[in-house]
Deep mutational scan, measured.
Amino acid sequence: HRQALGERLYPRVQAMQPAFASKITGMLLELSPAQLLLLLASEDSLRARVDEAMELII
């Protein structure tokens, strides 16, 4: 289940942060499945989480 969510998330994360897409997707997969579904449904929520992840990385 998580694998399938990751496969759906990755291209969207890659479009926002290509250099760190794998790392960010891995970080996002730590969230609950319900939270992941919310990110897939909301571009704004996904962008906010990706921005948060980038702050942790750099």
Rank of each mutant, 00 (worst) to 15 (best):
A53H: 04
L46F: 08
S42I: 04
E55F: 12
E52F: 08
E55D: 09
L36W: 03
A48E: 09
P18L: 04
Q35K: 07
L9V: 06
A34V: 10
L29P: 00
R2I: 15
K23Q: 12
L5N: 03
P18F: 05
L31H: 05
L39P: 00
L31V: 03
Q3T: 08
T25Q: 04
L39N: 01
Q17A: 15
L31N: 04
P33Q: 14
D44M: 09
A41N: 13
L46N: 00
L39E: 01
P33L: 11
E7N: 06
L40Q: 02
L56C: 06
L40A: 02
R2F: 05
A4H: 09
I58L: 14
T25F: 12
S45W: 07
L38C: 06
Y10R: 07
L38E: 06
Q14L: 15
R47D: 01
I24L: 05
A34P: 09
Q14N: 09
A4F: 10
V13L: 05
A48L: 12
L38S: 10
G26V: 12
R8C: 06
R47W: 05
L56F: 14
Q35L: 10
R47V: 05
I58C: 06
G6V: 15
V13Y: 01
R49A: 12
D51Q: 12
T25W: 10
E55G: 12
R8G: 05
M27W: 11
L31W: 03
L39K: 00
S42V: 05
S42T: 05
R49E: 05
I58K: 10
D44P: 06
M16K: 02
L46P: 00
P18T: 04
E43M: 09
A21I: 01
F20R: 02
L36A: 02
S45E: 10
S45K: 14
E55L: 15
A15H: 09
L37M: 13
E43W: 11
L9C: 02
L29Q: 03
S42W: 04
L46Q: 00
R12Y: 11
L31F: 07
L38H: 08
A34G: 08
A19F: 14
M27L: 07
R12E: 05
Q35H: 07
D51I: 08
K23D: 07
R12K: 13
I24F: 01
A41H: 11
L39I: 11
V50C: 02
K23M: 11
E7R: 15
A21Y: 03
A4R: 09
G6L: 15
A15Q: 10
A34I: 09
S22G: 10
A34M: 10
A48Q: 11
L5H: 03
E30V: 08
A19M: 13
G26H: 14
E55I: 10
A15G: 06
A53G: 02
D44Q: 13
L56V: 11
L46H: 00
V13S: 01
L38F: 14
R49T: 08
A21T: 03
A53E: 03
L56R: 11
F20W: 11
L40S: 02
Y10A: 06
Q17T: 08
M16P: 01
Q35C: 07
L28M: 04
R47G: 04
P11F: 15
P11H: 15
V50S: 01
R49V: 09
S32Q: 10
Q14Y: 15
P11A: 15
D44T: 12
R47E: 04
M27P: 00
L29D: 00
G6A: 15
T25L: 12
L46K: 00
E55S: 13
Q35T: 11
L56P: 01
L39G: 01
R8W: 14
L9M: 04
S32A: 11
A48F: 11
R12S: 06
V13Q: 01
L36Y: 02
L36D: 00
R49P: 00
P18A: 06
R8D: 06
R2S: 12
L38M: 13
S32G: 07
L37I: 09
G6K: 14
A4Y: 13
L29R: 02
E30G: 09
M54S: 03
D51L: 13
Q14C: 10
L56I: 09
E7T: 09
A53D: 01
V50F: 01
D44G: 08
L36S: 01
A21C: 02
I57W: 04
E7G: 06
L9D: 00
P11D: 15
S32D: 14
M16R: 04
D44C: 08
K23F: 11
H1Q: 13
I24A: 00
M27T: 02
I57D: 01
L46T: 01
K23G: 04
L28D: 00
D51H: 08
A19R: 11
L37W: 12
L36F: 03
D44I: 12
H1M: 07
A4L: 11
A34E: 13
L29E: 02
G6N: 08
E43Q: 11
M16T: 03
M27R: 03
M16L: 13
Q3D: 15
Q3M: 06
P11G: 14
R8V: 12
K23P: 04
Y10D: 01
L29K: 03
A41R: 13
S22Y: 15
S32V: 06
E7Y: 05
A15Y: 08
A4M: 12
P11R: 15
E7M: 09
E52S: 07
Q35S: 08
L9F: 04
D44F: 05
E52W: 13
S42K: 07
T25D: 00
H1D: 15
V13D: 01
L9E: 00
A34D: 08
A41T: 09
S32P: 12
A4S: 12
A4T: 14
A15F: 08
L29H: 01
S32F: 05
A53M: 11
L39A: 07
G26D: 14
A19I: 13
M16E: 03
E30C: 10
S32Y: 06
A34K: 10
P11M: 15
A41I: 08
Q17M: 12
R49I: 08
Q35E: 07
D51M: 12
A41E: 08
S22V: 13
A15E: 11
S32N: 09
Y10K: 05
S45I: 11
R49N: 04
S45P: 02
Q14K: 12
L9N: 00
Q35N: 08
P33E: 13
M27I: 08
R12W: 09
L31D: 05
F20K: 03
L40T: 03
G26S: 14
A53S: 06
D51R: 10
L37C: 06
L37F: 11
L38W: 13
L38Y: 12
S45C: 06
E7P: 07
A15N: 08
P18N: 05
M54K: 07
D51E: 14
L56Y: 15
I24T: 00
R49F: 13
A19N: 11
L36N: 01
A53R: 02
P11I: 15
I57L: 10
E7V: 12
D44N: 09
I57R: 03
S42G: 05
E55V: 15
Q35V: 14
K23N: 05
R8H: 07
M16W: 07
M16V: 07
A48W: 08
L29N: 02
R47K: 09
A41L: 12
A41V: 12
S42E: 08
R2K: 15
A15V: 08
R47A: 06
A19K: 12
Y10C: 05
R49K: 11
I58D: 07
I58R: 11
M27K: 04
A15S: 07
H1R: 10
L37N: 07
G26Y: 15
E7K: 13
A53L: 14
R47M: 06
A19V: 13
L40R: 01
V50T: 02
H1C: 09
A19Y: 13
G26R: 14
K23H: 07
R47T: 04
R8M: 13
F20H: 10
F20P: 02
R49S: 09
L31A: 05
Q14G: 04
S22R: 11
D44K: 11
P18C: 06
A4D: 14
A41P: 01
A41M: 13
L40Y: 03
A19H: 11
L5Y: 08
S32T: 12
A21E: 01
V50Q: 00
M27H: 03
L46C: 02
R8I: 15
L28R: 00
P18R: 05
